[in-house]
Computed example of a mutant assay.
Amino acid sequence: MSEVTSTRPLAAAIVERYAAAGATIATAESCTGGMVAAALTDIAGSSAVFDRGFVTYSNAAKVAMLGVAETTLAAHGAVSEETAREMAEGARRNSGVDVAVSITGIAGPGGGSPGKPVGLVHFACTGPEGTRHREERFGDRDRAAIRQASTIVALEMLLAALPG
């Protein structure tokens, strides 16, 4: 789990690195509701790298906007590695960017189950080198803390996706 607590330094490093490389980004967010996109666009110069963000809170939005397969959602649920991967790949495909990141999880306080507890978040980041998945279990934190921690992990994945 990340020790970083602020999104600003990460977002600034991403904008700088992607701008230098001439690379572009899209986000596909569920439980964070656009917080990754907001962190990136808070940085001056982000328009050179940030193309768009998809906030796909409902399953219907994941299907319609990102092309997540209904069979994936039925078999694995919205909070799963499979859905996170399809979200990131759909965001990249539907925007034409170089790198896309996705987040889908259970921020609570309700909605968890023994198999998928509150604080479970799946991430995927896809780019020219393929798609990487990461799972975090943020545990018994409040909703705001889970969403903030998820935003930071997604930003870390974006930074790592483009070697600098």
Results as ranks from 00 to 15, higher is better:
1 M>S: 15
3 E>Y: 03
4 V>N: 07
4 V>T: 14
4 V>Y: 07
6 S>C: 08
7 T>M: 04
8 R>H: 14
9 P>E: 11
10 L>M: 00
10 L>Q: 00
15 V>A: 00
20 A>S: 14
21 A>G: 13
23 A>I: 09
24 T>Q: 13
24 T>Y: 12
26 A>P: 11
29 E>I: 08
30 S>A: 12
34 G>R: 00
40 L>Y: 14
46 S>Q: 12
46 S>L: 11
46 S>T: 13
48 A>R: 12
49 V>T: 15
51 D>L: 04
54 F>S: 00
55 V>S: 05
55 V>Q: 04
55 V>G: 04
56 T>S: 07
60 A>F: 05
63 V>F: 12
64 A>I: 09
64 A>E: 15
69 A>I: 02
69 A>K: 12
70 E>L: 10
72 T>A: 10
75 A>F: 09
82 E>A: 14
86 E>K: 11
86 E>P: 12
86 E>D: 13
88 A>P: 01
90 G>E: 01
100 A>Y: 13
101 V>H: 08
104 T>Y: 05
107 A>R: 01
109 P>F: 06
111 G>C: 12
113 S>N: 06
116 K>D: 08
118 V>E: 03
120 L>G: 03
122 H>F: 15
122 H>E: 09
126 T>I: 04
127 G>A: 10
127 G>S: 11
128 P>R: 10
129 E>D: 13
132 R>L: 14
134 R>L: 13
134 R>C: 06
134 R>Y: 07
137 R>M: 04
137 R>D: 05
138 F>R: 08
144 A>E: 14
147 R>M: 08
149 A>G: 12
154 A>H: 10
158 L>P: 01
161 A>R: 09
163 P>N: 06
